[in-house]
Write a protein that binds this DNA or RNA. Structure first.
Lengths: 197, 197
DNA sequence: GTCTATACTTCGATAGAC
DNA sequence: GTCTATCGAAGTATAGAC
């Protein structure tokens, strides 16, 4: 199976853009073929069906936004922990803002996941990835006595909720300073005289 | 125009459910008519087109989730402010969790808004509602010296991001204690020795 | 690998009787 | 108000030549 040809890649990339612009349902094989510059049945040489193609695009999409892709625990130091966390969050916000199609494609896949368990299951993995990822990151900070263990899990989940939703809010309002929101969220979590049991 | 008949309401309610179960595109007039128990052309007596009908459903949906619908500033007191904020958040989480269709319908409208400025504009209003609403709520708390003015806007936005995204996360994972996350978020914002300039 | 031609289905919407 | 009948457009997918 040597099917990662230029045509196949062109189909995938074009579909990604068309989904962002028109939604999955309106991104028909006719429209994709016209945009790529091939005939409609040619797509069936590379993909079994439209469902097959959309799901392959979805798998690739998910693999590129994993927690590990952005937050690598080994890069954090005791001296600069919260500063580094703020900085990596900035990079994630920036990277997704630089892809003009990202937000729309994400919303399409989310609405698909609402009704299809295959998509839903993959998104659950992704979400657990982030919830557990932030928790382990904060546990590392607790080992270094940078934050207390009290409410550590809740704090980790707050960070996950905030960084995940910043992208959605940016789509609707680009006048808000989202970098400052993330910075403040991290600072609240790392307050020296924070919550205690 | 006396068109708020039982038939009209039945069409609206059935469509709401079918959108949640199958998405907007697959909620065809044929399917809706079958479910309501009428013929397909009968729907056109109450709605000009499918777009018209979906948008009317969207308007009603938005009016029921306004900031004011949940958070009324006049009900907050100096003595119990953060406790009341936590409680009202619980009520909002509970109300949306009690409607099994809410999350899916919201995702459908969000993906529509990504490509249609009419829907997008209405969602922007809703978002500004929440961002400004939380900000004015915290300003009231600041007047009572319950929190400092420093980073007040950012804190308000963090609360908006968290409460808005809790619903999305609940769809994927109902094992997490989301009430505790909201409670912790409010407590972090209301810490006595919080952030200062 | 890529094409033309086409089968089959479903969609939104309209005409017109009752 | 509600129906039957039907139109034209667009969708996914396949057959078969090159």
């Amino acid at each position: 199976m040597e099917k990662n040809t230029d045509t196949r890649l062109a189909i995938m990339n074009t579909t990604y853009q068309l989904i962002a612009e028109h939604g999955i349902q309106k991104a028909s094989f006719a429209l994709i073929a016209k945009e790529v510059g091939i005939s409609k049945p040619s797509i069936y040489y590379y993909f079994d069906s439209k469902n097959d193609m959309i799901y392959q695009l979805f798998e690739q999409f998910c693999s590129e936004i994993s927690f590990q892709h952005f937050f690598n625990a080994e890069h954090f130091t005791q001296e600069q922990f919260s500063t580094q966390l703020i900085e990596v969050g900035f990079q994630m916000i920036q990277e997704q803002a630089n892809d003009p199609y990202f937000g729309n494609v994400m919303k399409e896949f989310l609405s698909l996941a609402a009704r299809d368990d295959s998509y839903k299951g993959r998104f659950i993995e992704l979400q657990q990835d982030y919830l557990k990822g932030f928790e382990q990151l904060l546990l590392k900070a607790a080992d270094w006595s940078l934050i207390p263990l009290y409410s550590l899990t809740e704090k980790a989940h707050i960070l996950a909720l905030v960084i995940d939703n910043i992208g959605n809010f940016m789509m609707l309002d680009d006048t808000v300073d989202y970098r400052n929101i993330w910075k403040t969220a991290v600072q609240l979590v790392f307050l020296e005289d924070g919550l205690h049991g």
